[in-house]
Amino acid sequence: MTTSDDTEDGEPTRREFIHIMAGVTAAAGAGATLWPLVDQMNPDASVLALSSKEVDVSAIAVGQAIKVMWQGKPVFIRHRTAEEIAEAEGTALSALKDPSARNENLAADADAEDANRRVDPNWMIVVGVCTHLGCIPLGTSSGENRGDYNGWFCPCHGSHYDIAGRIRRGPAPDNLDVPPYEFLSDTVVKIG
């Protein structure tokens, strides 16, 4: 059946074509107008400029840990003892809740063995934000509760992380993130 707007061979008429073109142009215009209104909420250039940081770690004694700010978030840098390294390396993968390395320096499918969580075994560097709802886990400053696995403990909802920052018990789904970092020298690490 043909209507007055269709030609004999079913092709759109000149009038329909104009309607379609006008509609598409209006939609494209609406999209182009909307996008700046959404994108203005994304991080701006001044925020992105703060995306890397160099830290001198020479003053951190064995067994100590510090917090530094990186991208508005705390990063934990722990100088691990020999026993802590042995404990982390001796943990079976089957004991881990999250089997993924969560290491931005490695491929996404790397597993969570200790070697995939750090560059240098002496230094454990993780983003100090609980993967549950973003609280800062305790255990960096001396005297704080380090949880049942001798690493970090999040007081908000009770997540326990081990000495390699891996989630062992509690509601957090993932291991603590390992940020992208490299050692520029023996004592200076560049995060980001």
Binding site: N42, P43, Q71, G72, K73
Partner: peptide, 9 residues
Amino acid sequence: TLFWGGFSV
């Protein structure tokens, strides 16, 4: 990120 406008609150 859209809520934050950065990498944290």
